[in-house]
Design a protein around this nucleic acid. Sequence first.
DNA 1: AGCGTTTATAAACAAGCGTTTTAAATTCAT
DNA 2: ATGAATTTAAAACGCTTGTTTATAAACGCT
Lengths: 224, 224
Amino acid sequence: MPKSKSLPALRERDPDARRERILAAAGEVFAKAGFERGSVREISLKAQVNVASINYYFGSKAGLYREVLLVSHQLLLEQEPPPQLTEEPEQSLRAWIHFCLRFVLMKRSAHPVLGRLMAHEMHHPTAALGELVKMVIKPNFANLVKIVEALTKGSLDKAQQEMAAHQIIAMCVHFDHSREVIGRLGFAVPEAEAGIARLANSVAEMALRGLTSKKPQTKKKSLA
Amino acid sequence: MPKSKSLPALRERDPDARRERILAAAGEVFAKAGFERGSVREISLKAQVNVASINYYFGSKAGLYREVLLVSHQLLLEQEPPPQLTEEPEQSLRAWIHFCLRFVLMKRSAHPVLGRLMAHEMHHPTAALGELVKMVIKPNFANLVKIVEALTKGSLDKAQQEMAAHQIIAMCVHFDHSREVIGRLGFAVPEAEAGIARLANSVAEMALRGLTSKKPQTKKKSLA
DNA sequence: AGCGTTTATAAACAAGCGTTTTAAATTCAT
DNA sequence: ATGAATTTAAAACGCTTGTTTATAAACGCT
């Protein structure tokens, strides 16, 4: 299928460019509002494209969403490979937390809103969640669990390690998920490198101390 | 305004009962779907009431939502007063975390779904968020900060204390907010007392160690 | 040129939403 | 009992949603 980009048609009629425009616009809209709240009409308006084009190119709104969600994650994970467990578990954990916070908080130039896509998906799952979990979430979670395992070898069993991993993830995603409330409580959620690094440091401190310091004492809990 | 409950009308016509039925149904629907996604028609169906009754009694969908959100929180906070800082800061923190997790996770008989209401409000704020923050969130956050302050006096400044408080809240609300994904990663989010207490213990352990153990060393971070 | 396919658009469709209207019941006060 | 006020209910309104249909324009090809 030969392209005729060389001679510019009077009326714009480059399918690839239109497809890209739709994807970009959908990325913004879905990131802002999630799948259900994001409307195809707003997307078509932003992409300067007729509404019907969306169904023409992507079959349905759900098809477009799936494409946006998955390819954008693939792209980012290729550009910024997630940190693995190295010989220095402490540094690995710091790197993992920093990576996660960057992923979730940072306003990227390439894809300014990727974290929000996943946030919506986590809070309001769609049919695409399964693929996202398998492709992105599960592997990264497994990496984190390996790091935690290396840091707590012996002192925590598998279930406790996973629970701790969830707690660490909690401290990362919370600042995105509850951004509005956190802001109203007087805390400015960082969006740039410096602030994110500072937050990552604080989270890593708590995680490292919480994981590695000796168990204070296994005293009986006195329920109030 | 005299009530005529003594003689039961052939057709049910007790305004108070209807109002209560609407409130209960709205609680379920809004907790499940949030404000926007919850429809007045579903509520009217569940309450066995005409759609117009909702506007008759509450003015609008937003008015009904505000009523549901605020009075249900008031009721719960009267029944279960939130923990304050006592002479034993460690126990106070444990109690606070346990309270927060119960609030967020537990399926109550009185109001089975209260935590979900706030979760939706945090993730997708409505006009009622302001009141909720002022009434419920801000005071409880202030309590937590006081506890953290007592535990870290001297070693952390005010801003660091607040950041730590947010991290502790994160570990509590995450298990509700990201319930679906956490489930798919193989972790069963507890809904009953025993499991919640166990989770609260784990969170408290990490928080306490993270807050109170000495700073390991303020080494320069080596960014990957 | 002309034919067939691909692509683009406008318009219509069916369904759902919150709300309002209209009108019929029921209750209350006189 | 009769008239006014309150409460219920059905229907319609106006709007937005995702999708489909019908039509027209632009292209590749012979």
